[in-house]
Design a protein around this nucleic acid. Structure first.
Length: 420
RNA sequence: GUGGGUGUAGCUCAGCUGGUUAGAGCACCAGAUUGUGGCUCUGGGGGCCGUGGGUUCAAGUCCCAUCAUCCACCCCA
């Protein structure tokens, strides 16, 4: 137990962590280009925020949250997503009083009690963005464009952008009614889950992966056909925005997101070859969420992208990221007497701006050379006991296979000239 | 929550139908080439065979449970 981490969690080790920094740095850069500002919210919130915000009936809230009672008797939940916390922060800090829209992005860990699988973990990471205060469909297009732009920057190819409109409180009842009328005679053919969904949330039947259900839903009326004028216009403008940016997309009338708060625009980005969990990002508009969370009627749009899945997709597509850095200089000693000098030289090198290291394992000189080779050090400085007597050291350029003899007190200067 | 695969050295794995002191490659450490890495050779350290029960004269091998891990369902990022 002491030496195993909890199920569904990961250590990100040297060699791996560089990929994370790479992805996160790219995301920050893109966000800054689009004029989004970073926000950091707590990793835990009051349970009620997610119950109300994400929705009591969603799987996330119903069975996947890490919820506990703290010592003060409050019900606390590790955040399963970051949209509700961002909304909370927006309201709590009265960000509706600054000029709108407010454009935010976040990077951080999320927690869901799921069964681990390829691309799915209990502590996983998301990068995401939210825009509060504007109902402009071009903002929907901007946010999609930003996500796609980010993927492209990372070198990811063959991604599919799926879009849909899930309607608004005005037209959703119409859709529900139409859908139920259509499905009523077919209800016996549906899977057990969908029979339950029929009453609670018939929309989700469209999204069911069970073959019988997708067949039954094949010709069912979809959201798009039932959209009210307003929603329909919003969707058209959103698509126009994407067209203006030359973003290709697939209108997926079956796309229904699992979080309750979505209205109008919904989208998802799929990557091939990363297993069953092929969605590497998704989002949409949530015009009712801020009000649900206790604010006034303020619109919002956003997305979340899964960092693990992005990295997985990059690996599958053979995109290489520079790994752990290697030292500029490795100091090797020949003979015990040279150790103190080596230790000293190390610190001189570092203050001159080199990354430098030496052996701390009492290795033989040969083993030190071998080790230096493995670290990938560009230069090796060899301090021999005998040479030290006359103040001399040898400097080897590992790349060029060249070796020079230098005065000990000129080694740093020499390396500085060589570094360029 | 449901289903299937896997669990032997630090890593990747072998170990056939149960039968002596459990193996290989890589890695690690040390020596050979009498002070200079990556090649070659030699030697060495390391394994409650995931854990706990059971069957048997005998279990790494068979059975049960449990845990971990991978994959899929589900859900989602």
């Amino acid at each position: 137990m002491l030496t195993t981490r909890p199920r569904g969690t990961n250590d990100i080790l040297p060699g791996e962590v560089e990929k994370w920094r790479w992805v996160e740095n790219h995301f920050r850069r893109v966000c800054v280009e689009y004029c989004y500002n970073e926000i950091r919210t707590p990793v835990f919130e009051h349970t009620e925020l997610f119950q109300r915000g994400v929705g009591d009936t969603t799987d996330i809230v119903a069975k996947e949250m890490y919820t506990f009672v703290d010592r003060g008797g409050r019900s606390i939940t590790l955040r399963p997503e970051n949209t509700a916390p961002a909304v909370r922060a927006y309201l709590e800090n009265k960000l509706y009083t600054v000029p709108q829209p407010v454009k935010l992005f976040y990077i951080g860990p999320m927690f869901r009690y799921d069964r681990p699988q390829a691309g799915r973990f209990r502590q996983f990471h998301q990068v995401g963005a939210e825009v509060f205060g504007s109902d402009d469909p071009y903002v929907d297009a901007e946010i999609v464009a930003m996500a796609m732009n980010f993927y492209k920057d990372l070198g990811l190819a063959s991604l599919e952008l799926h879009i849909n409109s899930v309607g608004c409180p005005d037209c959703r009842p119409v859709l529900r009614r139409e859908l139920k009328n259509y499905l009523k005679p077919l209800i016996g053919d549906l899977c057990r889950d969908c029979q339950e969904r029929f009453e609670k949330n018939p929309l989700r039947i469209l999204d069911c992966k069970v073959e019988r259900c997708s067949e039954a839903g094949g010709n069912a009326p979809t959201t798009i056909e039932c959209l009210c004028e307003n929603c329909s216009h919003h969707f058209a403008q959103f698509k126009k925005g994407l067209d203006l940016l030359n973003l290709s997309y697939i209108v997926d009338r079956r796309l229904v997101r699992g979080l309750d708060y979505y209205t109008h625009t919904a989208f998802e980005i799929m990557a091939p070859d990363i297993g069953a969990q092929s969605s590497i990002g998704g989002g949409g508009r949530y015009n009712g969420l801020i009000e649900t969370c206790g604010g006034s009627s303020i619109p919002g749009v956003g997305f979340a992208l899964g960092t693990e899945r992005i990295i997985l997709a990059m690996e599958r597509q053979g995109i290489k990221i520079p790994g752990a850095s290697s030292p500029d200089v490795f100091v090797v000693t020949a003979g015990k007497g040279a150790d103190a000098q080596a230790f000293n030289l190390l610190f001189s090198l570092r203050s001159a701006g080199f990354s430098a290291d030496k052996d701390y394992m009492n290795r033989s000189m040969k083993a030190q050379m071998k080790y230096a080779g493995k670290t990938g050090a560009r230069f090796v400085v060899i301090l021999g006991e005998e040479e030290l007597a006359s103040g001399i050291a040898q400097v080897r350029d590992m790349g060029a296979c060249k070796q020079e003899t230098k005065k000990l007190d000129e080694v740093v200067k020499y390396l500085t000239s060589m570094k360029k």
